[in-house]
Simulated scan of single mutants.
Amino acid sequence: MGLSDIASGVKVTSKQHDRSIAAVDATDTPLSNRLAPFADDLPCTVEAAVTLVESYVDGSSVGKSARTAGLAPVTGAKTLHLLGEPIAPLSPMGRRVVREWIDAQCTRAEALELSNASEVEFALAVFVETHDPLPGVRETLEPVFTPDSAKRSTITKRDVLAETMSNADDLR
Rank of each mutant, 00 (worst) to 15 (best):
M1A: 14
G2T: 15
G2D: 15
D5I: 02
D5Q: 02
S8P: 00
G9R: 13
V10A: 09
K11R: 08
T13H: 05
S14Q: 05
H17S: 13
A22Y: 11
A26I: 09
A26H: 07
D28V: 00
T29S: 15
P30M: 08
L31G: 11
P37R: 13
D40M: 14
D40H: 13
D41P: 02
C44P: 04
E47K: 10
E47L: 05
A49C: 04
A49R: 04
A49Y: 08
A49T: 08
V50E: 10
S55E: 06
S61D: 06
A66R: 09
A66S: 08
A72K: 11
P73M: 10
P73E: 04
V74R: 08
G76Y: 05
L80H: 06
H81D: 00
L82F: 11
G84S: 10
A88P: 01
P89K: 04
P89S: 08
P89F: 02
M93E: 14
G94H: 06
R95V: 04
V97T: 14
V98I: 14
R99K: 09
W101D: 03
I102R: 06
I102K: 01
A104N: 07
Q105W: 07
Q105Y: 00
R108D: 04
A109D: 03
A117D: 04
F122M: 09
F122N: 06
F122T: 02
A125H: 02
A125V: 05
F127G: 08
E129F: 00
L134T: 05
G136H: 00
L141A: 06
V144F: 03
V144M: 14
F145P: 01
P147R: 12
P147E: 03
D148L: 12
D148N: 15
S149L: 10
A150Y: 08
K151Q: 09
T154V: 15
T154A: 12
D159H: 15
V160C: 10
V160H: 07
A162L: 07
E163G: 15
E163R: 11
T164R: 07
D169G: 02
L171V: 03
R172F: 12
